[in-house]
Nucleic acid binder design. Structure first.
Length: 868
RNA sequence: GCGCCCGUAGCCCAACCGGUAGCAGGCAGGUCACUUAAAAUGACCCCAGUGCGGGUUCGAAUCCCGCCGGGCGCACCA
């Protein structure tokens, strides 16, 4: 085979990338121009670490295929890219190696952009944004001031999560269920600090109630957000504190409960050890015990304290409260199972109807009083545990006999009328802690003045720029706080000496609006114009990792709702459809005894993997690619060897997009072979003299004039159009779409040589058009060889229903539900005819043995089932 | 503990509303052809009855119930 007729991606890919760039092929049209539909395809933008990994490739290739298909469908497509460019790695590089974080980041951006461009992504780079550039973060600051003005940004002293490795505070969303930082993995500590928060809780109801609208989102992401918001409805009830002599002290303990219907069963009240009233209400006799207990709890980590299986412990503090429902005097306790941060930090103990209270009451011999019985049953004693289901009230005075559902409302209403309670909703969601004690972030644009308080930096003085030439010691807190020349300023209000805020913003602030900026990236008067943002957004298809199910995706929704309320944009939700792509996993070898990971290159025989040093048998599994596990595959190496088109095709074909993908070099090889087959197929056609110009002019012969092979080819072609189109609109099943392309190429291999010119040309055209979004370079190259450019500006092909029609179809004959044979029947036969044909068949004769069936089920085009 | 998702050939994956489980596809394996040989290429072949047990149905991978295995989220949230 000569070189000219061999598929050599290295020779064609770069050439086309340059050509497309020169032609402005990926430029974004006016959203409403040419009467075409706008379509916004977006990938979650990356942190510019400097290294592109396979997870990025998967993400951006998926989005690129969507963008390319929509363009061919005639949409005006916005497909941008940018950089989530603030963050700790840059600052750590500065500390460790003395490089400037800005320079370091810019170099990484340049390197990653070049890597991305090798993938042949149809990105409009003229809209690129980087969150660390002042022309971007100026607007992050401007938006912060919008929050401040709206009363949605505030400072408060609070117990917050402190990451001891990254030396900064973290929002709740950024600490996982094991109490570890999402970034550093360190166990977070609790610290009491004055910090900036955004009032996301003010939007908790909207964020929760709008979830059902997000029909284009995966169910599990919606569920995760709903769990995270954690709304629970109930009541706050007040238990007056009673002095030793039985008189009210005037104070009261307010508890939160979702079960006001069980208040008559409350036999004690428990406070969190950190509750502010503990010290005041503890009696002298109990002081020693209470202090000792509080110490004990304080020494425990969050994790130890909240472990599910841990026994519950507590001590009475000596004081008593009155149950407002029945007037009973009941003891006041503190216990480790009550959390200060949730509800009111106090609960009423109803052992008969709450499992935790039940366990606690058993342990400390507190009374158990049953006030709910299962509907229709008699009163019964408790043995196994609490009755937590709804039922009917007893021992509840005037509420006896009410079902618990009604009783909740009735008791809450009574409490409100009598002044000892009110309906209340609480959330698990906390306000978003956005200040960070780090340099490489967006400065919070406020000034602290002793006389004027918190003063926003006037909008015309934005951006508050990060100072350059800063010393990075890694010690003593944020470099900004140590740079007096930077933070010492005059108050914009009164002109007296004041202090600039030295905390920077959580980088999730920067990423909460970047998708809006892409609609109008060069705007110097506003973060974006209302017109631009409303014409492109909501994002039609968003693609990214599931790890942001809560974090980024919740914050971005919050931002959108606030900006809508500020009149800056006109929609409720930023992302209409969301695809969460699975991880790319590499083959991983691990010595089960030493726990060491072994690089695949060091494994001599993959079919019998052994430790190269000790000879021990290794564990083999697939895991997310990472340096420490030696299981990563560098995209650049794959592109060098096989080209970007093979990498793209493989990553799309190997698994459905939302599932994890196991990288396998042998499969990549197989994918490359497929592209080679296409190359040869088209190459052969070119030698035969076939081209594109011809096919446009040549009209297809009448169906009756086609040979059986031509009919089959046309059926394959139009089946492929239909299937690929379907796979790319609804569920985005790229893996089956690629399989369809393989099927089509197989059919072409079989029938192309014998097909007449118009039929052959139609097949070639279609194969390349369908291939174009997946393997853009190869499709373009072959399209050119057939005589035209650019395939990417061609319309998406339409399926010809007539080509799908068959004259006869195989009819399955079942007898009593079991397949007994096939019958070739006319495709348009009606039910009665099919039944006749089936009954008259040899198969029926053989299996029915002469008896008439008692029942016949006919599914036209499919089968006839004869039931004797 | 609660909730969600997934279990189909040696492996990765298909199978519309329940209707022939693979002329969906790929990888791996085998045989043959081409070749001096190998690679490449082509042809053919091999391979599961759908995790297990019940149920509904003329008919179940698909629907229902219960287990087993794996993954994810939440978790002393009152």
């Amino acid at each position: 085979m000569s070189d000219a007729s061999r598929y050599q991606p290295q020779a064609i890919e770069e050439r086309w990338q340059q050509h497309w760039q020169a032609q402005g092929a990926d430029a974004t049209p006016e959203p409403q121009g040419r009467a075409a539909q706008p379509f916004y395809a977006l990938s979650m933008f990356p942190y510019p670490s400097g290294n592109l990994h396979m997870g990025h490739v998967r993400n951006y290739v998926i989005t690129d295929v969507i963008a390319r298909v929509q363009r061919m469908r005639g949409c005006n497509v916005l497909h941008p890219m940018g950089w989530d460019a603030f963050g700790l790695p840059a600052e750590n590089a500065a500390i460790e190696r003395g490089v400037d974080p800005g320079d370091w980041t810019d170099r990484n951006i340049a390197a990653m952009r070049a890597q991305l461009q090798r993938l042949g992504l149809s990105i409009d780079w003229s809209r690129e944004v980087a969150t660390c550039h002042s022309d971007y973060y100026r607007w992050t600051q401007w938006l912060f001031l919008q929050f401040l003005e709206a009363g949605l940004a505030y400072q408060k002293e609070a117990t917050v999560n402190w990451d001891p490795i990254d030396q900064t505070v973290l929002a709740n969303e950024q600490v996982n269920s094991e109490g570890r930082s999402w970034r550093s993995g360190a166990l977070v500590e609790k610290r009491k600090l004055r910090q900036w928060f955004l009032k996301i809780t003010a939007y908790a109801d909207q964020l929760l109630d709008d979830l059902p609208k997000l029909e284009g989102w995966p169910e599990r992401v919606r569920t995760m957000q709903a769990n995270w918001i954690g709304r629970s409805t109930g009541a706050e009830l007040s238990f007056p504190v009673v002095a030793a002599d039985g008189s009210d002290t005037g104070e009261a303990i307010t508890v939160f409960t979702t079960r006001p219907d069980t208040i008559f069963g409350a036999s004690y009240v428990v406070l969190a050890p950190e509750h502010p009233l503990v010290a005041e209400l503890t009696t002298a006799e109990q002081a020693i015990h209470v202090e000792a207990f509080c110490d004990l709890v304080a020494r425990q980590s969050e994790q130890e304290r909240t472990a599910d299986d841990k026994p519950k412990r507590g001590v009475p503090i000596g004081a008593r409260v009155r149950n407002p429902a029945n007037g009973e005097l009941i003891p006041l306790w503190i216990a480790d199972y009550v959390l200060a941060e949730y509800g009111t930090g106090a609960v009423m103990g109803v052992p008969a109807h709450d499992q935790r209270d039940f366990v606690f009451a058993r342990q400390y011999e507190l009374p158990v009083c049953q006030v709910i019985i299962p509907e229709g049953s008699d009163e019964h004693a408790y043995e196994g545990g609490a009755w937590t289901e709804p039922g009917v009230l007893i021992h509840s005075g005037r509420f006896d006999g009410l079902p618990s559902g009604e009783a909740k409302a009735a008791i809450t209403a009574a409490a409100e009328a009598e002044g000892w309670g009110r309906a209340r909703t609480t959330y698990r969601l906390r306000d978003w802690l956005i200040s960070r004690q780090r340099y490489w972030g967006c400065p919070i644009p406020v000034i602290q003045c002793d006389s004027c308080g918190v003063v926003p930096v006037p909008a015309d003085q934005l951006p508050v720029e990060l100072p350059r030439d800063v010393a990075f010691s890694g010690k003593g807190g944020s470099p900004l706080a140590q740079l007096e020349s930077w933070w010492r300023v005059d108050c914009p209000c009164c002109g007296r000496p004041a202090r600039r805020e030295t905390d920077t913003m959580d980088t999730f602030m920067c990423s909460s609006w970047y998708f809006l900026r892409y609609s109008d990236p060069q705007n110097t008067a506003l973060p974006f114009s209302r017109e631009a943002v409303d014409s492109w957004l909501p994002v039609d298809q968003y693609v990214g990792g599931i790890e942001h199910a809560i974090l980024h995706l919740l914050y971005a929704r919050f931002f959108t709702k606030v900006l809508r309320d500020r009149g800056l944009l006109g929609f409720d939700e930023p992302f209409a459809r969301l695809l969460t792509q699975g991880m790319v996993q590499g083959i991983t070898y691990k010595n089960p005894h030493s726990g060491k990971y072994i690089a695949p290159a060091d494994v001599a025989d993959p079919s019998d993997p052994r430790d190269p040093v000790t000879g021990e048998v290794l564990e083999v599994f697939y895991e997310k690619m990472s340096k420490s596990k030696y299981n990563g595959v560098d995209p650049a190496v794959v592109i060098d060897k096989y080209g970007a088109d093979t990498a793209r095709m493989f990553i799309l074909f190997k698994a459905p997009p939302e599932k994890d993908l196991e990288w396998d070099d042998a499969d990549v090889e197989g994918q490359f072979r497929f592209l080679q087959r296409i190359w040869r197929l088209v190459d052969g056609a070119v030698e035969r003299g076939l081209g594109l110009a011809d096919s446009a002019e040549l009209s297809l012969p009448e169906a009756t004039a086609l040979s059986p092979g031509e009919k089959e080819l046309r059926r394959a072609v139009h089946t492929a159009i239909r299937s690929v189109s379907e796979d790319l609109e609804g569920e985005l099943q790229f893996n089956t779409a690629v399989a369809e392309l393989m099927k089509l190429s197989n059919a072409m291999g079989e029938h192309l040589a014998a097909a007449s010119e118009p039929v052959a040309c139609e097949g070639l055209r279609t194969l390349l058009l369908l291939l174009a979004p997946f393997a853009p370079h190869l499709a373009e190259e072959l399209w050119e060889r057939l005589g035209a450019t650019s395939i990417h500006r061609q319309p998406w092909p339409a399926s010809d229903a007539a080509a799908l029609v068959r004259d006869t179809v195989p009819l399955v004959i079942q007898v009593k539900g079991k397949v007994r044979g096939n019958l070739e029947v006319p495709a348009d036969a009606d039910k009665a005819t099919l039944e006749q044909l089936a009954l008259a068949s040899d198969i029926a004769a053989k299996w029915l043995e002469g008896r008439a069936p008692s029942r016949v089920i006919v599914v036209p085009g499919k089968l006839v089932n004869l039931v004797p």
